[in-house]
Design a protein around this nucleic acid. Structure first.
Length: 386
RNA sequence: GGGCAGGUGGCAGAGCGGUCAAUUGCACCUGGCUGUAGACCAGGCGCCUUUUAGGCUACGGGGGUUCGAAUCCCUCCCUGCCCA
């Protein structure tokens, strides 16, 4: 992998660049659609390409559990498996330490909000596995060596270590992979966050040591919660190591303002030559602010998830709930200014009908729109870096 | 004409003397979703008042029994099935 900074903005820390991999280039700043289970839910790779996506991000944990990284390796690797010949990223499974672990601490079947300071704190969610997993028991247990997961599918036990995560990611064969980390919760205190950070740093070393580097690039990940000294320590620590790129992980504070503050602490400490990836962030205003703070790439499930749930992204940063009855007879496209396949061919009324009728084309068309929206946004962002 | 079953909130369908403004599902409305346990989740859903709360009108129509009726009785209307 090669990364070139083509231009730096005069009035911010924004960078225009390009990541070159064996499977093609990624123009940065870029938004990377998430395809957790080796598919961007609902879309064919042709549709993704038509939208303009240059890369996708898949998930180590999910693909390890099903169909299995060895199986994918035997089938010719992730690119061949999913018929995507452009760059692929894989997350290390570190986020699942959070989403299946700490996020559940406040009761079974609950996922902590990403920014608890701005939300009600927790989102209730009934788990399908309550009958298998006893109440209050988390799906994960973190130890020095690694993390014990209980499969969210069948409750079976699995142990993920930095070495194993790297091995799985090598078997999958993504172009850009991540070190195994612990994504802490915004609800964790300083003590725990520090303890976790030091462990994540040991895991970073182990990830790097296990990494063979054949046609793959490895990103180290900066943790440290919303604590300035920890974030700075992490930024320096990860920067010193021989990672190909730098990931910035969350707990990113309790509010968006805190997240921007954290990015402001971290990015000045990072090497100019390495690409920076902000993990899991993808709201319009967040991306714009983060780019100005020097972030190059983003991945986020939000555009695709909210699309499936009936929300279409609009330019003002708002979203349109296409399921609402007020669009029943609306002849307009989702967005008159949008050039996507969906907006060129279908009315709000039709999309409203598809969602009401639970037709799968509804989520598909809305996903196309939202990802096209993100591509259009990133193109504008790139053009604005002067 | 005779027999039987039944008429409950937008729909389906519970309830069968008080804890019923009425379980549940669907539909509908609103909100949320940020390295995907998520095509999901939460809330609302008779009317009125300023939330808590209170008031009003309600279980086909009318009448009755009872301290109290969606629930029991009478009657009328309507629906379905069976026999002529």
């Amino acid at each position: 992998m090669k990364f070139k900074v083509l231009r730096k903005a005069k009035h911010s820390k924004a960078r225009l660049g390009v990541i070159e991999t064996k499977h093609g280039v990624i123009h940065t700043p870029a938004f990377i659609p998430v395809g957790t289970q080796a598919t961007v839910k609902g879309l064919t790779v042709e549709q993704l390409k038509e939208i303009g996506a240059e890369s996708v991000l898949c998930n180590t944990y999910h693909l390890y559990l099903r169909p299995g990284d060895e199986a994918i390796k035997k089938l010719g690797g992730l690119h061949k498996f999913m018929n995507w010949d452009r760059p692929i990223w894989t997350d290390s499974g570190g986020f699942q330490v959070f989403s299946l672990g700490a996020a559940m601490e406040h009761g079974v079947g609950k996922i902590a909000s990403m920014f608890p300071g701005e939300k009600s704190g927790v989102l209730a969610r009934e788990g399908e596995l309550e009958h298998i997993i006893s109440k209050k028991e988390k799906f994960t247990r973190v130890t020095e060596d690694g993390v014990e997961f209980r499969s969210h599918m069948d409750g079976s036990r699995h142990f993920l270590t930095p070495e194993k995560s790297i091995k799985i990611q090598e078997n999958l064969g993504a172009d850009l992979i991540f070190a195994f980390d612990e994504c802490t919760s915004p609800l964790h205190d300083y003590q725990y966050t520090k303890k976790s950070l030091i462990r994540t740093h040991r895991w970073a070393k182990r990830s790097l040591a296990a990494f063979r580097g054949e046609n793959q690039a490895l990103y180290g990940i900066i943790q440290g919660g919303a604590f300035k000294d920890l974030r700075e320590e992490a930024a320096k620590f990860i920067s010193r190591m021989h990672f190909d790129g730098i990931g910035i992980g969350g707990a990113l504070g309790n509010t968006k303002k805190e997240m921007y503050k954290i990015l402001g602490w971290v990015t000045p400490l990072l090497p100019e030559k390495k690409p920076r990836h902000l993990l899991g962030i993808g709201a319009l205003e967040d991306i714009i602010k983060a780019v100005k703070l020097g972030v190059d790439t983003f991945d986020c499930v939000a555009p695709t998830r909210i699309a499936r749930n009936g929300s279409a992204l609009l330019l003002d940063g708002e979203s349109l709930n296409i399921k609402s009855g007020r669009y029943w007879k609306d002849k307009n496209p989702l967005d008159k200014t949008c050039g996507c396949y969906t907006c060129q061919n279908y009315t709000r009324a039709y999309l409203n009908h598809l969602f009401k009728a639970h037709e799968m084309l509804g989520p598909i068309l809305t996903t196309i729109h939202n990802l096209y929206f993100m591509e259009r946004l990133m193109k504008r962002v790139r053009e604005s870096i002067k």
